[in-house]
């Protein structure tokens, strides 16, 4: 219904003076307050984690009995922490690129194409999210040994890509479904080839979905513990592997320092990217 009405409505609207889009109303105030509360909920644990990372105590404690940089020192002084962090970033970054490229291509096929077995392919693509990680780890390990992929960088990257692709597909498919296919058709009828259509029409429209998928893909790899435990091996140890070490007995407060640094860096990187983008656009 919306599909056929949209262009007509747009045409109608264009001829009339636009009303104020978002008038200040009580419903909007409530919505804003509610959103602020939800954001507060998301951020709340950080208010505990960051002070705790500067704690002088020998185990996690709040409020910190004294201030110290010992956990940051511990992180930077110990090669096992820093190398694990670098390894995780390398793996997650590569996974993000691979999974995003594969996932966007697959989403285009699944949403725009129509071929037999599409439903089954849909099921296959989401199933890595459903199967518990320990089962995936054991199953993949058996295959990996025969393919000589155990303890290799690319072995871990491929395994994590399997786990990350569904996030990209789910997100990108949703945005693809949400936007009007006739914009693509119009571009093509005007002479754009398939790539040009994708690059200049489709891609800008689905970029929020690609962003969401890419972030999830990065996280899916960056946070993944169990498959990494099986495949990475001692020399390719990832950050979650290092964090979960010795968990049976104790929590190493270094992880509070690691979390604080990750929060700071992610905020800095995303925010500076945003500001850079603003500047380059001149607004």
């Amino acid at each position: 219904m919306a599909e056929t009405a949209a262009p007509l409505q747009r045409a109608v609207v264009a001829t009339q003076p636009a009303r104020r889009r978002w008038s200040i109303s009580w419903s909007r105030v409530i919505l804003g307050l509610f959103s602020a509360l939800v954001l507060l909920y998301l951020v709340a644990p950080v208010a505990i984690v960051i002070p705790m990372s500067f704690s002088a105590a020998k185990y996690l404690s709040f409020p910190p009995p004294g201030l110290s940089l010992q956990w940051y020192q511990n992180f930077f002084a110990r090669a096992d922490w820093t190398s694990a962090t670098i390894q995780s970033i390398r793996v997650a970054f590569t996974v993000m690129i691979l999974a995003t490229v594969l996932g966007v291509a697959a989403s285009l096929a699944l949403v725009r194409g129509s071929f037999p077995g599409k439903d089954i392919v849909n099921l296959i693509i989401v199933s890595p999210l459903v199967v518990p990680a320990i089962i995936v780890a054991i199953a993949i390990y058996g295959i990996y040994v025969r393919l000589y992929l155990v303890q290799t960088f690319w072995g871990l990257v491929l395994a994590h890509t399997v786990l990350a692709v569904p996030y990209v597909v789910v997100n990108v498919s949703a945005t693809l479904r949400g936007f009007d296919i006739r914009l693509e058709q119009a571009a093509q009828s005007l002479g754009a080839n398939a790539w040009q259509t994708f690059r200049y029409v489709t891609l800008p429209m689905i970029s929020p979905g690609i962003f969401a998928g890419a972030v999830f893909a990065f996280i899916a790899s960056f946070d993944e513990l169990i498959v990494a435990l099986f495949i990475a091996g001692a020399r390719g140890r990832t950050l979650p592997m290092r964090m979960f070490e010795g968990l049976r007995m104790e929590i190493d407060p270094t992880i509070a320092a690691v979390s604080s640094m990750l929060i700071t860096f992610s905020v800095l990187i995303l925010a500076s990217a945003e500001f850079a983008r603003r500047r380059s656009r001149g607004d």
Binding site: R90, F93, T94, Y148, V150, Q151, T152, F153, W154, G155, V157, G233, R235, G236
Partner: peptide, 15 residues
């Protein structure tokens, strides 16, 4: 990334 991992891969080949 690939270069560094190549090294890991070689080492890892010997399991």
């Amino acid at each position: 990334v690939a270069g560094a991992s190549g090294l890991v891969a070689c080492a890892g080949g010997q399991q």
